[in-house]
Structures are given as C-alpha cells and as structure tokens.
C-alpha cells in the first residue's frame, strides 16, 4: 500500500498513476481504431471521362466515391448549343462490321497477385439462375471469370473475376487476401496458350452490396480493365452473409 502519511510523495504517485491510466484508457481504443485497414484506397478516375455536355466540368478527383457523370444532359435541362468543334469524349464507338471483330484472346487459366499470396485457377462462370447474381465457383480455391463479359486481354470493357473470401465449410477462399491488395500491386493472368497478361491495381473500394455499381463493374465498353470482387465488411451471422463487396480494379501495365 502507498503510505498515507507522506502527502507530497503520495500526490506524485497518484498523479503518475492517473496519467498512466488515462494514456492506456484512451490510447488502447484509439490505437486499435487507427490500425484498422482503410476500406477504400486508390482512384478510379483513370477509367472515367468527363461529361461531353459540360466540357468545363473537370474530371472528378474523388471519382471512387461517386457515380460517373451522365454522358448526356438531363432531359429537363437541355444543354446550350455546342462549341463549333467540341471534343466528344465519353462515348465508346467501335465498328460493328463482322470482319472488324477482334479475335478472342486465349482463355485465362490462373490469376495471381504475388504480393498478396493470391494464386488461383480460373474457371468460367455465368449467372446463378436462382438469384440472378453472378455465379461463384463451388470450390473456394477457384476464381470465376464472368464469361458474358470481355475476357482478360480484350480491347475494351471490364473482365470480372470473382472468388470466395471464405466459406463456413471450406474455410478461407482464394480471394481472402483481396482486402489487403494495394494500388500498384501487379495482377497476372496466365492464359491457356502459355502467355500472361500483367495488370496494375489502381483502386480498392468497399461498397455496401446494395450500392455496388453493377453497370460499371460489368461494363462491356470503355477502357479495358480487370475487376476482382469478393465479399467483405461486417458479417451477418444469422443470414450468413457479408454486408459489403470488396472491389479491386486493375489496368493493363504499360510495357
């Protein structure tokens, strides 16, 4: 026990204990909060183009958090007459001639993010008939490529790869580490013909499932990129569902 007859010394001791206790009481929760991984990193601005109707409007620097600008003005507010020679960005145009269609790239067989220990076989998937959602491979070690969308190596559009984060029965899935992926990480897609395609991660974003921008994730036009998706966020242990989707976007590396 601290003696009670030595009052100045007593006060110093209690003051020191108070200081230490306060530091611990505030520091432990604060430190924990500060070390949580950031749910959103990087920017999707590279995939987006400004609206043609309002060329003065700069590209949104926080594009990761907002939907892309509408390419045509709202019907209620007709745009003024265009400049004599305006640029017309934002509308992808391709030839519809049969002989102009690009040859199909070789089938992808494996996807790897070496920096995050992701290395998984790729299997073709489509739509789950019962739910209308994207089909996910049965085996949590596999990653599904949504085949109705452009394949990796296509000239345009989003190639969508989705894998389990985990499963109650099978444990951790191929995309468990997706939430650790950082901008600049290299994603490699190995093709059946022995070649490989390299992509560089530009952003990782966590969306509540109801707010996942489906039209953008499954876009078939615009700059070609990879979209890697899994589940994340809080887990509802009654519905056995995660609340969010974790979306990683990677663009072809310039070599």
């Amino acid at each position: 026990m601290i003696p009670t007859d030595d009052r100045p010394r007593d006060r110093r001791r209690w003051a020191a204990l108070l200081a230490v206790a306060l530091v611990v009481a505030v520091g432990v929760p604060a430190g924990w909060a500060l070390t949580r991984p950031d749910p959103d990193v990087g920017s999707l601005a590279a995939l987006r183009t400004p609206a043609p109707a309002d060329p003065a409007d700069p590209a949104d620097p926080e594009a990761g958090a907002t939907p892309p600008p509408a390419a045509v003005p709202d019907a209620a507010r007709p745009a003024p007459a265009p400049d004599p020679d305006p640029a017309v960005p934002g509308v992808p145009v391709r030839s519809g001639r049969l002989d102009a269609r690009p040859p199909d790239p070789a089938d992808p067989v494996r996807v790897r993010v070496p920096a995050r220990a992701i290395d998984a076989p790729v299997v073709p998937v489509g739509v789950e008939p019962a739910t209308g959602g994207m089909e996910i491979p049965e085996d949590v070690d596999d990653v599904g490529l949504y085949t109705p969308n452009p394949a990796p190596g296509a000239p345009e559009g989003s190639s969508v790869l989705s894998g389990h984060v985990d499963s109650r029965v099978q444990g951790r899935g191929a995309f468990f580490p997706l939430e650790q992926v950082q901008p600049g990480d290299v994603v490699t897609v190995d093709l059946a013909d022995g070649t490989a395609l390299d992509y560089e991660v530009i952003a990782r974003t966590r969306y509540p499932k109801a707010e996942l921008p489906l039209a953008e994730v499954f876009s078939t036009a615009g700059p070609h990129h990879l979209t890697l998706i899994t589940c994340g966020g809080a887990f509802d242990s009654i519905d056995r569902q995660y609340q969010d989707n974790v979306v990683v976007v990677a663009v072809p590396t310039r070599t």
Binding site: W32, R97, E128, I136, S162, V165, Q170, L214, F218
Partner: peptide, 30 residues
C-alpha cells in the same frame, strides 16, 4: 451486316458465408 453484343448484368455478388473476413470487433483483452 452489323453486329452488336449485349451481356446480361448480374444482380449482385455473394462470395462468402464463413465470416472469418469480417473486421474484428474490439478484442476482449483490449
């Protein structure tokens, strides 16, 4: 002939029912 292709957009993506990836709650020891 002119050719256009249109893909069906899925309604969502459910890719986990384990719960191990959920952000940890404030730990009991802390």
């Amino acid at each position: 002939l002119v050719v256009q292709t249109v893909s069906h957009t899925p309604t969502g993506i459910d890719s986990g029912d384990g719960g191990a990836a959920a952000p940890a709650a404030f730990p009991a020891w802390a």
